[in-house]
């Protein structure tokens, strides 16, 4: 299997704090990789490094055969990395359609073509019935789907999902799982941060465990859940499975 993403020795320092330290793993093309770890483990920091929101202190990131370590966020997005934000960053004064449109405009300035892409994406993410609503008026679940829709409208090769399930009800979570699997079947590789262990087990081909900024282990969901170190560091530690 070809690797879509290769993270080598990723290290990010904020002042005296090592938010990420020496993290190395790959995401294969077409794979869904889950990232788990306690609060403050450095999961979002890792996403920010991959998406170019900040640059690494040390280490390298190769996406689709290209070294993107020093590239800026918009350049990485154009290469095919879509992302969502842990706290939805919807454009509240714009409609749902417009929120998705700005994603669709990445590959074309043609409004007609972009509008088709928007329609398609809204249907995929089950937002078509809300298309004329202001994004600020959406509920949490819809805002999370809108985050995915905006990223999907850019036709990414790799999608970074930061806790898309947090704050959702059980039914909403099931819908979200279905959506992630559907997106993956469309050929998009996915790296997803997830607190809910059931969800991680259902969707991921492999799971990456981070603890205090370091990589604890990479393995299949079964390997991860049966590893005693993981259990004590994360699962056992009074975990927030339902956060």
């Amino acid at each position: 299997m070809r690797n879509i993403l290769e993270i080598t020795d990723a290290t990010k320092q904020f002042g005296g704090l090592m938010a990420n330290e020496g993290i190395t793993f790959n995401v294969g093309e077409g794979e869904i990789v889950g990232v788990v770890g306690p609060n403050g483990a450095g999961k979002t920091t890792l996403f920010n490094s991959v998406s170019g929101a900040h640059t690494l202190t040390r280490g390298s990131i190769v996406f689709d055969g290209q070294d993107v370590t020093q590239k800026k966020a918009h350049e990485i997005a154009r290469l095919g990395v879509g992302r969502t934000f842990q706290i939805p960053q919807s454009l509240n004064e714009m409609t749902v359609t417009e929120n998705v449109l700005v994603g669709a405009l990445m590959h074309t300035a043609d409004m007609k073509k972009a509008a088709e892409k928007v329609q398609e994406t809204l249907e995929l993410c089950n937002l078509a019935h809300r298309k004329d609503m202001l994004a600020g008026k959406l509920n949490v679940a819809q805002k999370k789907r809108l985050e995915i829709a905006r990223a999907m409208a850019t036709d990414p090769k790799l999608l970074l999902l930061d806790e898309t399930m947090a704050g959702l009800t059980a039914t909403e979570r099931k819908d979200a799982v279905d959506l992630i699997l559907k997106i993956n079947r469309m050929g998009v590789s996915i790296l997803t941060i997830e607190h809910n262990m059931d969800v991680v087990m259902t969707v991921s081909n492999r799971v990456v465990v981070l603890v205090s900024g370091k990589l604890l282990m990479v393995g299949t969901p079964e390997e991860v859940t049966s590893n005693p170190e993981v259990i004590s560091a994360y699962l056992g530690g009074g975990s927030d499975t339902d956060e």
């Binding site: 966020a73 918009h74 454009l91 994603g103």
Partner: peptide
């Protein structure tokens, strides 16, 4: 308008 709304979101959809 995207930049006005949120610069991080703007960068994430490829806007310089």
């Amino acid at each position: 308008r995207t930049i006005k709304g949120n610069e991080d979101a703007a960068a994430s959809v490829g806007i310089d």
